[in-house]
Write a protein that binds this DNA or RNA. Structure first.
Lengths: 411, 411
DNA sequence: AGCGTTTGGTCAAGAGGAACACAAACCCGG
DNA sequence: CCGGGTTTGTGTTCCTCTTGACCAAACGCT
């Protein structure tokens, strides 16, 4: 196994920070955990865990509670869990057909959640930000003073520059180079950092942390509404690429004779497996939208041949593309989200067959295929995870301040 | 930027180990460095650097030498460099047309190197191991007692399981599930670990550490002899996938109407950009091999239309596939190795054009394209890096033992 | 030659986790 | 119902490692 060098030297202060982060991360993902479970998970000693958990508890990030007897021998270990109400994030999503807002507490509990439909089509960034703010206001108000919002995460349908959240390209909205992070920040006036990422990447993150891919370190997540996107987890980390644009798996060329893609290219995978392709094959208007999709799926469920054939052909292409991605990424798990999760029951045979033909045997043997567990909410939940990241990486900044060491001048 | 949690808690012992590793890694890649440069690179203090470099020097891994005056003010800083002669690795390569053996010292200096042609075609694993052993023997003998071989790295044309070096599939050799690591180990009798990896992955590693991609953290390396392979560097780390099979970029579907591929699928990228495709387009026998390739390239250099057209069409497909990979990986740099490096001068316009059409603008803007710097030797050099990895990750095990703390019983 | 600058050498101090011994709380069996 | 076995929390001491401060050394420049 090849590992890259640590980019910087470890300093003694780093160790504590890393250990606090490890423990909080562990609790964020797997709460509740007893101290002894934390010992097992992290490899640290009881003494160290004691000190670190104590510090997190004193800082208000974690609560420890006596566990009533559970039938195990030995002294009972108190359970630790993150305080879900103290620090929260505001998670936003701008999807093709809907807007979503959620308030999520540490540990991943969704405290408030609302999703509203929106009409497809091009929209002004400022008016969208207004809509999100109007949705968020009552949720924030209902939290009142109990919770502190430490960050905002936004899931966007589009190509997002990681460094600053600039939307480079969002064909569904007709946007190019829109500084949505700044717009949201100005509109919401919460004075917390706004993190933006692509919906596919965030969906992958959410499924990896809370969904079908928990515990799996190499995951390929495929999702799509109108467009086809996705995200990849490599060795437990999201694949970002140099600028954060990685994971645009909908736009790989699979058919030189294919039709023109919304990205400007031709024969992209999206043109064969996207919503429009399925609707076209099912004899619907390609731009008929989500209602038509629902219609096709229910007709197929009722046994209608035209729709089943359309699904079969689409599943074929789905498998062909997945085969290539299996050869590229060698994932342990492929998670099919949104429309692909919904079609999977109808097309699993085609997908498996195409994988068998198109992927090399060795990586093929390792790749399971599963429908997503989080459904349409994966991107918002991923946005929440994104917004929590600074806290999880360095909890020290959010701990209640310890009394400062006063140095008397001249002493 | 999303980071995954540290998998384990940091212990105080870990810190020293990590710092030793960081320094040795730094010296391995960028030697010679002065102590003060190490301070700048690692962020550690002078005291810490002093102690750590001193330990590495005492352990025989590093030498420090007085630097003659260089014109800078202040006390001169001694230069540190890894001892290239003390610990070495044996790097082997089984390529399509050749076998290579090298002895590489710490710091990457190639102490001995030999490459011999071999006939294409299926070969028995044991006889190949014999050939490699015969090539290695005189090189090892010429090093004599001066150097200690600490590991063997092998670059293989084929699909390699990372865990144990099993060759799952090597169409060029007609192998399936060949335990080449064991065979090499038994044949060479050096009693050191044998690490095996795919030639594309190792080529990427070598170009990243010593070649055209030094200092670039997101790299896509494309190479091929008969087959088309490659390797990907993601955030400075090689992309391995769940089983080490990742990076088989030659076998993504790009043309459903394409011809059958040696992997068993149809219309893989390899069938459009591989050696056989180029030879076919140039009117040669597809299986005519390397001599025919040389012939095509020199004819093209002389201005022959048929060959230039063949290259143009191949370059078109090269660009189409790269466009998809740019959308998937968002690399800062694409390194074209072996046959692609050689054709690049003839096809750069087509590649750039196809990238412009097929890749999305945002990732496209970040991706430079360069021919490889290490040429055909990249995989062997990568194999050497692979074999050095255990030493670089934890140098403590190779340091000369310090006098043990004697505890007198009862004292 | 003297001064400023940069870097090495040394040592005490501080921080943090490990190791160990002990105490507490539970289950179980007689 | 009581005592042994087991598991885990608590507290103390020890060890390792880095930092930071101070001084010395070696160089260029004026």
């Amino acid at each position: 196994m090849l590992t890259s060098r640590e980019t910087a030297g470890q300093r003694s202060e780093t160790v504590r920070r890393a250990n606090l982060s490890t423990i909080l991360h562990e609790l964020h993902l797997n709460a509740p955990l007893s101290r002894s479970q934390l010992v097992a998970h992290t490899g640290l000693t009881r003494s160290a865990i004691r000190g670190l958990v104590g510090e997190l508890a004193a800082g208000g990030l974690v609560i420890e509670e006596r566990r009533s007897s559970v039938g195990t021998p030995g002294r009972p270990s108190p359970l630790s869990r993150p305080r879900t109400d103290r620090y929260v994030v505001l998670a936003l999503e701008i999807a093709v057909d809907s807007l979503a807002v959620a308030i999520v507490g540490l540990g991943g509990s969704v405290l408030e959640h609302v999703r509203v439909d929106r009409a497809r089509g091009h929209l002004d960034p400022d008016s969208l930000a207004d809509d999100l703010a109007r949705l968020a206001a009552p949720l924030l108000a209902s939290r009142g003073e109990r919770s502190t919002v430490i960050g905002i995460g936004l899931s966007m349908v589009g190509v997002v520059r990681a460094a600053d959240g600039l939307i480079r390209f969002a064909p569904n909205l007709g946007w190019r180079d829109v500084p949505i992070a700044d717009i949201i920040s100005r509109r919401l006036r919460l004075d917390v950092p706004v993190s933006v990422a692509n919906d596919g990447d965030l969906g992958a993150l959410a499924e990896h942390r809370r969904g079908a891919a928990v515990g799996v370190d190499n995951v390929l997540y495929v999702a799509g509404e109108v467009g086809v996107g996705g995200g990849v987890i490599v060795d437990g980390r999201p694949l970002a690429g140099a600028g954060g644009y990685a994971g645009e798996i909908g736009h790989v060329p699979v058919n030189p004779a294919g039709s023109e893609c919304r990205c400007g290219s031709r024969g992209c995978w999206e043109t064969e497996v996207g919503e429009r392709a399925l609707l076209r094959r099912a004899g619907r208007r390609p731009t008929a939208g989500r209602a038509a999709m629902d219609d096709v799926l229910s007709a197929a469920a009722a046994g209608s041949t035209v729709e089943l054939d359309a699904l079969t052909e689409t599943g074929e292409w789905l498998g062909i593309g997945l085969a290539g991605l299996v050869n590229i990424f060698n994932p342990s798990l492929i998670v099919l989200g949104s429309i692909f999760g919904r079609m999977y029951p109808f097309v699993s045979a085609q997908v498996e067959a195409a994988l068998g033909r198109g992927a090399m045997r060795a990586p093929r043997e390792m790749a399971r295929v599963l429908p997503a567990a989080l459904g349409a909410d994966a991107p918002v939940l991923g946005a929440a995870e994104l917004a929590f990241e600074p806290l999880l990486v360095d909890p020290a900044g959010w701990l209640a301040p310890r009394p400062a060491l006063v140095r008397v001048a001249g002493a």
